[in-house]
Amino acid sequence: MNLSLTLTINGEQREIVLDDPRVTLLDLLRERLHLTGAKKGCDRGQCGACTILVDGQRINSCLALAISYDGSAITTIEGLAENGALHPVQQAFIDHDGFQCGFCTPGQIMSAVGLIAEAQADGDAERIREAMSGNICRCGAYQGITEAVLDAQAKISTGKERDAA
């Protein structure tokens, strides 16, 4: 059985043919398209290491059947930097030591990008922590992660105000 789908991945339209409907978005990205930024931690929607954006919304790619997302636009960690310049969230994670081993970091960063777009957390650290609870960091870098998200959010909203002016 061949199943075909169209996805826009990091801005590029891809025609994909699957030989098996069981392939998740995570396995499609990692094993077939060699975009290994999204990580397979638990593979059961509990750790958040596989977080990607689908049509701008953060989801767990391990619990998403690729075939079902036919027609979607996907952004992975590989698609964040523009012309070699880091995305403000990526830069903020470096500036605030938002990681140790780095395994959860692509998921943390994608989740933070989604969180900032959702615009529910304003500058409240408690709201940030609550909204990031789907991303586990076993090194325990949560303090740095929270600071990074707060900083990136402030910089992105300042940038937007400047653009609007």
Binding site: G45, R58, I59, N60, L63, A64, S111, G114, S133, G134
Partner: peptide, 9 residues
């Protein structure tokens, strides 16, 4: 309920 990622899906 759940996490932000799960609630989005």
């Amino acid at each position: 309920g759940a996490s932000a990622q799960l609630r989005n899906a």
